[in-house]
């Protein structure tokens, strides 16, 4: 049953962004199961519970209270069991600094939150349907930031 769905998790403290995110997936014709968490602490608590369903793609907002996206990323990279999760940074800004840092820390893609809903849908479809195995092999600093 698991194979039929793409499991997606978003950790973002912004309610509007969570709404756009879930709305976008609802409109997309892809079999996805979307879970959202309000911050990094909730996210890590969930991921660390036994027998939880690990997501295929994890969207991480960087700027979150209590535990930031960077901290989550650091923790995730410590454990082998999270190795298969594709991590997409999902942030308002795309500053050189943040891009560089998250790339070095092992995130798979960097997404700048789009300004309109159509683009958001396009971006999310793109990211969710990427063949991560293949994509990660050709990953470098230049194509790390998703451009559409």
């Amino acid at each position: 049953m698991q194979e039929d769905y793409i499991n997606i998790i978003l950790a973002d403290d912004d309610a509007d962004d969570r709404l756009f995110f879930t709305d976008a997936f609802e409109e997309l014709k892809i079999n996805t199961r979307v879970k959202t968490f309000n911050d990094g602490v909730y996210l890590m608590d969930y991921l660390n519970t036994e027998n939880c369903v690990l997501p295929n793609v994890l969207f991480l907002d960087l700027n979150m209270p209590r535990k930031s996206g960077l901290e989550c990323l650091r923790e995730l990279k410590k454990f082998d069991k999270f190795n298969d999760i594709a991590i997409a940074i999902y942030s308002t800004s795309a500053s050189e600094e943040d891009i560089e840092k998250t790339f070095i820390m092992g995130a798979n893609i960097y997404i700048k939150k789009p300004n309109d809903f159509k683009t958001l849908k396009k971006v999310l479809q793109e990211v969710v349907t990427i063949n991560w195995q293949y994509y990660t092999n050709g990953l470098n600093k230049d194509n790390f930031l998703l451009r559409l």
Binding site: D14, D16, F20, D23, N63, T92, S93, S95, K113, P114, N115, D116, F117, K118, L120
Partner: peptide, 21 residues
């Protein structure tokens, strides 16, 4: 300016596009 101004603006734009659609 980069972060905190952009965020509400992005929301405005996104909601506008939702409204239009």
């Amino acid at each position: 300016a980069s972060h905190d101004l952009q965020e509400p603006l992005r929301k405005i734009q996104t909601f506008l596009s939702r409204l239009e659609d």
